[in-house]
């Protein structure tokens, strides 16, 4: 288990060095995520302990945002003065995103389902074999 914690901290540290260099635009944890994924893809398998570590920690992911989220009380003024644009952007923007994305992707999903039957299914099967 300690090995897996070290692995996570290692990729996180690489991400932090990259972020601090000022040449790399990604936040350190995102770089760490990409590097860990790349490592797993190269290995082709997930170490058991790493899976357990991820499941345990991600189970209470929601708790980890609480300290930073409480900081909003320091910005209550911003919220009060800009409540209308904020609520409109959050609720309106999310509704628009849901609607447009669902309609477009659903249209594509239907065309794929109609056009693919034998041909592309084959290609997908091949990809799956390579992956296994």
């Amino acid at each position: 288990m300690l090995e897996q914690i070290a692995r996570v901290l290692l990729w996180l540290s690489v991400g932090e060095i990259a972020a601090r260099s000022g040449l790399w635009p990604l936040p350190a944890p995102v770089t760490g995520l990409i590097l860990l994924y790349a490592e797993l893809a190269v290995r082709g398998r997930l170490p058991d302990d790493l899976g357990i570590l991820a499941d345990r920690l991600l189970q209470f992911l929601g708790m980890l945002f609480v300290p930073a989220g409480v900081g909003v009380i320091a910005y209550l003024d911003v919220f009060k003065t800009e409540a209308t644009p904020i609520l409109a952007a959050v609720i309106g923007g999310t509704a628009i995103t849901l609607f447009v994305t669902m309609v477009v992707v659903n249209l594509l999903g239907r065309t794929i389902a109609k056009s693919r039957e034998p041909g592309s299914e084959c290609v997908e099967g091949a990809e799956r074999d390579v992956n296994a």
């Binding site: 914690i5 996570v8 901290l9 990729w11 996180l12 991400g15 350190a28 944890p29 995102v30 760490g32 995520l33 990409i34 860990l36 994924y37 797993l40 997930l46 790493l50 899976g51 570590l53 991820a54 499941d55 920690l57 991600l58 992911l61 980890l64 945002f65 930073a68």
Partner: peptide, 12 residues
């Protein structure tokens, strides 16, 4: 713990 948790999103 937030940083390591984000890195671990690679697992799912």
């Amino acid at each position: 713990m937030l940083g390591p948790a984000v890195v671990l999103l690679a697992v799912p």
